[in-house]
């Protein structure tokens, strides 16, 4: 955009739009850090950065996706992960998972408790967890998810596929050993 800054009215409208996404930003930050102080700090910094850069936002595009990308970038910056490119890709398709009966697995997925699901999601490597959350929980498109994560579309597809398989395996693990919940 060639504009230098917004007018007072435009800023006011931008802030009102921004506040409609506050809950989504808060919950995504919650998934990234889980520490309340850092969550609030991340969201606040995201909002202020967005306001400062409001003139760069292209109207007609997805404000929510833009805000998420700012938040994710800020989180990476704080944790010095911005240049991290090598994924903690230790997962490989489990033969056991392939062998499990489809009906049992479907039951595991459908009956998963929130606590188990949250725990399984948190156990995912951050790169996979973010891809799954952005696409499946926050309903961003592939392109928007790729933009937020600053990776190519193909990388998002790969992370989604691997992340979901890891999630399914973890949920299956909780079903197989329910007593583990008490120990965690």
């Amino acid at each position: 955009m060639d504009r230098v800054s917004l007018t007072e009215d435009e800023k006011d409208r931008f802030c009102r739009s921004l506040l409609t996404h506050l809950d989504a930003l808060y919950s995504f930050a919650w998934w990234l850090t889980h520490r309340r102080e850092e969550i609030e700090d991340l969201v606040q910094e995201t909002c202020l950065r967005a306001l400062r850069s409001a003139h760069q936002f292209e109207s007609g595009t997805n404000l929510k996706a833009w805000l998420f990308s700012i938040l994710k970038h800020e989180w990476l910056r704080r944790h010095h992960l911005a240049k991290r490119e090598v994924l903690s890709d230790t997962f490989s398709d489990s033969p056991k998972l392939q062998e499990r009966a489809w009906a049992v697995e479907m039951d595991v997925i459908r009956s998963a408790l929130q606590k188990d699901l949250d725990e399984a999601l948190r156990a995912l490597p951050e790169e996979y967890r973010s891809a799954v959350l952005l696409f499946d929980l926050y309903s961003f498109s592939l392109k928007e998810t790729a933009a937020i994560l600053a990776v190519p579309d193909g990388t998002v597809k790969s992370r989604l596929s691997r992340g979901r398989l890891m999630l399914r395996e973890k949920l299956q693990g909780y079903r197989a050993s329910p007593g583990d919940d008490d120990e965690m």
């Binding site: 989504a24 808060y26 919950s27 929130q114 699901l117 999601l121 929980l137």
Partner: peptide, 11 residues
């Protein structure tokens, strides 16, 4: 399941 049960705490 993720959409319906995963935590998404509001501000």
């Amino acid at each position: 399941t993720i959409r319906e049960r995963a935590s998404a705490p509001a501000a």
